[in-house]
Design a protein around this nucleic acid. Structure first.
Lengths: 167, 167
DNA sequence: AAGTAATGTCAACAAAGCTGACATATTATG
DNA sequence: CATAATATGTCAGCTTTGTTGACATTACTT
């Protein structure tokens, strides 16, 4: 509103420890809300948050390789494999050998997988939509700006790369 | 951005599924950054994120009872007890019998506990401060508004109650 | 042909959540 | 006062999801 300038000096006046602490607590409580709806859906189906993340990013990056997914999720291949194995066995994810490089496996959601993805993301988007419209459009821009600035550099690159791909 | 008015109708136009999805992903990646620094500190000391949360909220609510802490953290008493037991055994948290109700135990950080709390929250505040000043003061207000709107009602009440207590 | 890369898998372990059962004080209530 | 409810602690067992380390297979690169 006021200046819009990247003026380091003035801003610091507002960043008391108390304010920063409230920001920290807001992240904590909000993240709980953020994951609550999908968690409820998943608990019926013997899947957990790890499955949700895999499904989400396979949906976002159809045909992604395992290695790419590992980089996005930031877990070990053993950990991801455990999740992926059940999703493939249950017919939610398909695994096709790469045409150019046959070592790679390209991951896609099946119809069933896409249906679960829709259920999960509908729930999560509903919450996000509610928060966005309660807070107003200016708030949304601020929200996104702070979150983006909070990421590690690597993650921000990942995040922005996905944006460029599919916006 | 555009108008600045609390116009409900227009806003919905901007809330495309894609935009909502980007918000969801921003939360995911930002939360990783948010916890990264404390996690690094804790991994040296055989403590985890659960210990961090307990320490944080005991610091914020000195003298809190176990039941109150359970409500804030949203875990079972068995789970909290495991964490609390080690913190007390290690001399980071003290446990005093209530004066008015002798069933209650009031929790405080010891000197050692407060020192660890400071290390942890310094790291986390530094990240938060960086994000805030990168994003600017308007963004901060928006960030907080969206996060608050994203919480479950119970959690929002907890969150605001702590604000009122110690701002 | 040898080395590197991508993937998968086994085993063992740890953190942190859960349920259920039960014990001990202490307080509240009929 | 006797009984019920509350606050806390603890044991045991189980689940999810992360970790290391080792090793195999296939395919690409040099």
């Amino acid at each position: 509103m006021t200046t819009g300038m990247p003026n380091g000096g003035q801003n610091l006046l507002f960043l008391t420890d108390e304010q920063l602490r409230k920001g920290i607590e807001a992240m904590f409580f909000a993240y709980r809300g953020f994951t609550a709806d999908p968690d409820r859906i998943l608990s019926d189906k013997a899947y957990g948050r790890a499955h949700h993340r895999a499904i989400h990013f396979i949906h976002r990056n159809p045909g992604t390789t395992v290695n790419n997914l590992l980089a996005i999720l930031g877990v070990t291949k053993q950990s991801l494999n455990r999740v992926l194995r059940t999703l493939i066995a249950d017919g939610l994810v398909s695994n096709t050998i790469g045409k150019v490089d046959k070592r790679e496996r390209h991951l896609h959601l099946t119809e069933t997988g896409a249906a679960l993805e829709r259920a999960l993301s509908d729930a999560q988007r509903n919450r996000m939509r509610g928060a966005y419209s309660a807070a107003g459009p200016e708030a949304v821009a601020g929200f996104r700006a702070v979150l983006e600035a909070m990421m590690d550099d690597d993650m921000r690159r990942q995040f922005l790369a996905m944006k460029d791909k599919q916006t």
